[in-house]
Simulated assay, not measured.
Amino acid sequence: MIKLFLAIFFTLTSLNALETSNKLFECTEIFKARKSELLVELERIDEQKQSLSALKTATEELLVKREAKASQDEAAVKAKLGEISSKEESIKKILQKNEEILKEIKAIKMSKTAETFAKMKAANAADVLSKMESQDAATILSSLKPKTVGTILSKMDAKKASELTLILAK
C-alpha cells in the first residue's frame, strides 16, 4: 500500500510538475512576447525623443535668429528716431529764426508806416485809416504817439473813431 501511495504521490507530483512546467513555459512565452512589444515601444519612444530634441534645437536656433533680428530692427528704429529728433530740432531752430526775422520785418514795416502816418496831416490820415479794415487801422494807430492818435481820431467819423478806440483799448 505504501508503494501504491508512493506511486500515486509521484504520479501526482509529476503531473503537477508537468503542469507547472507548462505554465512556466506559457509565462516565458508571454514574457518574450511582451518583451518584444516593450522593445518596439522603447524604440518608438526613442525616435520621438530624438525628433523632439531636433525640434527643440531648431526652435532655439529660430528664436536666437529672431531675437537677433529684433535687436537689429530696434537699433535701426532707435537710429531713425535719433535722426528724426535731430532734424526736428533743426527745423524748430530754423522756424524760430524765421519767426524772429518776420517780427523784425513787421516791426520795420510798421515803423515806416507809422512814420508815414505821423508825417501826414491829421485829416488825410483820418481819411485813409477810415477806409481800412478796423484791425489794421488800430494796429497802425497803436504804433503812433498818443497825441497824434488823438488828433487823427478827432478828424475821423465818430462811429469809426469809437470802433478803433475800443480795439485800441483791448
Rank of each mutant, 00 (worst) to 15 (best):
K35V: 08
S36M: 08
S36A: 13
S36F: 09
E37G: 04
E37C: 03
L38C: 01
L38P: 02
L38R: 04
L39W: 03
V40W: 05
V40D: 13
V40Y: 06
E41T: 09
E41K: 15
L42Y: 09
L42D: 11
L42P: 01
L42E: 12
E43T: 07
E43C: 02
R44W: 07
R44F: 07
R44D: 11
I45L: 15
I45R: 11
D46E: 15
E47N: 12
E47W: 04
Q48W: 11
Q50P: 02
Q50T: 08
L52E: 09
L52N: 09
L52A: 10
S53M: 06
A54P: 00
A54E: 11
L55H: 05
K56I: 09
K56F: 05
T57N: 09
E60S: 07
L63M: 07
L63C: 05
V64Q: 12
K65N: 09
K65F: 05
E67Y: 05
E67R: 15
A68S: 10
K69L: 12
K69Y: 05
A70N: 09
A70I: 10
D73H: 05
D73L: 14
D73I: 11
D73N: 08
D73K: 13
E74L: 15
A75E: 10
A75I: 08
A76W: 04
A79G: 06
K80Y: 08
K80T: 11
L81S: 12
L81I: 09
L81D: 08
G82A: 13
G82K: 10
S85I: 10
S86N: 08
S90P: 00
I91E: 07
I91V: 11
K92C: 04
K93E: 15
K93A: 07
K93H: 08
I94V: 12
L95Y: 06
L95Q: 11
Q96P: 01
N98S: 13
N98L: 12
E100C: 02
I101V: 13
L102N: 12
E104C: 03
I105W: 03
I105S: 09
I105N: 11
K106I: 08
A107L: 08
I108H: 10
I108N: 10
K109C: 03
K109F: 06
K109Y: 07
S111K: 15
S111P: 02
K112C: 02
T113S: 09
T113D: 05
E115D: 13
T116D: 05
F117D: 01
F117M: 01
F117L: 03
F117W: 01
A118P: 00
K119W: 03
M120Y: 02
M120S: 02
K121N: 13
K121D: 15
K121L: 07
A122Q: 04
A123P: 05
A123T: 14
N124E: 15
A126S: 02
A126T: 00
A126E: 00
A126Q: 01
D127C: 02
V128T: 04
V128D: 00
L129P: 00
S130R: 03
S130H: 02
S130Y: 00
S130I: 00
S130C: 03
K131E: 12
K131A: 14
M132N: 07
S134W: 01
S134H: 04
S134F: 01
Q135M: 15
A137C: 03
A137W: 00
A137L: 01
T139S: 12
T139L: 14
I140H: 00
L141N: 00
L141S: 01
L141Y: 01
S142I: 01
S142R: 04
L144P: 02
K145G: 10
P146Q: 11
G150T: 09
G150K: 08
